[in-house]
Nucleic acid binder design. Structure first.
Length: 150
DNA sequence: AATTTTCCTG
DNA sequence: CAGGAAAATT
């Protein structure tokens, strides 16, 4: 589900778990999940962006900073959010991830990472890129299963 | 004040 | 992922 929306409201999230009775604890836990998801996402983004800066994607062209489905970063993200490859990761997510990576990259290149809250501008950009979650996720057979072994 | 997000840690 | 503290947002 994170593939589609990075900043879902708690109320929106609840609609995807019809069989769960929500109290404040469960709700905060659910929010915590996405918080963790976001963190992992941004951490990887910053990590790879910094790596790209270090290795010097210079040479005059920034076109090398691409995120493809065969990229290591994609592999890590998919491994984290889609452990058993149950879902097809939408092109939208790949595009957004690449954009986020570019944003981090340019920010770091420009030295904007020295500012205390330089990530906030990036967060706002990513926040606007949320897409609607397909109805498929409301199906019983498609739980956001994070650790089921079978 | 309550909810939500972020930073840090395990 | 989960628990907690602090900060940010409403």
């Amino acid at each position: 589900m994170f593939f589609y929306t990075r900043y879902p409201s708690s109320n929106t999230l609840k609609t995807y778990f019809p069989d769960v009775k929500f109290n404040r604890c469960i709700t905060s836990q659910l929010i915590k999940w996405f918080s963790n998801f976001r963190e992992f996402f941004y951490i990887q983004m910053e990590r790879f962006a910094r790596q790209a800066v270090r290795e010097g994607v210079m040479g005059g062209g920034e076109a090398e900073l691409r995120l493809r489905r065969d990229s290591e970063l994609y592999r890590i993200l998919n491994l984290h959010y889609n452990k058993s490859n149950d879902y097809h990761v939408p092109d939208r997510f790949v595009e957004i991830s690449e954009l986020a990576l570019r944003e981090f990259f340019t920010a770091i290149q420009a030295g904007r990472d020295a500012d205390p809250c330089w990530k906030k501008s990036i967060y706002k950009i990513i926040c606007k890129l949320d897409s609607p979650v397909p109805d498929s996720f409301r199906l019983p057979g498609c739980p956001t299963d994070t650790h089921s072994t079978g």
